[in-house]
Design a protein around this nucleic acid. Structure first.
Lengths: 108, 108
DNA sequence: TCTATATTTCAATAATACTTGAGATATTGA
DNA sequence: TCAATATCTCAAGTATTATTGAAATATAGA
């Protein structure tokens, strides 16, 4: 992941509706969820949900797969891991305070 | 860390100049660096550096301490860890693909 | 083919964020 | 107190992003 991708991914998550969409999709795991259900879950009209879903998709954090009339969105956990790994390693240089927060359950 | 704080922190990092400032400050560790030096390091005029530094500071990701005429900025590694820990735990629910990226050196 | 469903795209508007340069504030030392 | 240094604040202009509702596209089934 390069700097532009990281900035895109961080920017994609730095928005209330999109962060909620991502968290909702995390609960759905590999099943994912269709756009309509996602919009309802985060109380967003269809065009608004679509806009935010494509922002997340452009940032590479979610995938989209058409299944008949619906489009199923899923979290790309590898991409999330890539972004978070970049923050820990490249950005924070594995600083012990950061690593501790990420490894010790209940800490931070 | 609550949702608003996370969004603030993510938004603060989702900008080229600020991400570079943070990375520069990481290399400076607990010594930190004064605003002028930071601005020079990222090729930003003083008012621009000041704007981005206060954005990072408002987000809680860096601290500011006046030392005579200079203001020394430092990364708040605990805050960085808090943000990253939130992403791993609360947001991604400790999904194995995410955790693997963060723990296995060289992975992702 | 017609109709209903699911989602996206578009245009207009509103809200936020970024950059620039000028001027203000804080601190130090002569 | 005065001048120099370091940084911040402000206002104006520009750019980017978000919201809304209407219209377009894609798919499925009668």
């Amino acid at each position: 992941m390069n700097e532009d991708q990281i900035i895109g991914a961080l920017g994609a998550l730095a928005q209330e509706t999109r962060l909620r969409i991502l968290r909702y999709l995390v609960t759905k795991g590999s099943d994912g969820a269709p756009a309509g259900e996602i919009g309802e879950a985060v109380s967003a009209a269809s065009s608004r949900a679509s806009f935010h879903l494509s922002t997340l998709s452009n940032a590479g954090l979610v995938t989209a797969e058409r299944k008949s009339r619906q489009i199923i969105y899923r979290v790309d956990f590898q991409a999330m891991g890539g972004m978070i790994g970049y923050l820990i390693k490249d950005c924070c240089n594995n600083h012990q305070d950061v690593v501790a927060c990420c490894q010790i359950p209940g800490k931070c």
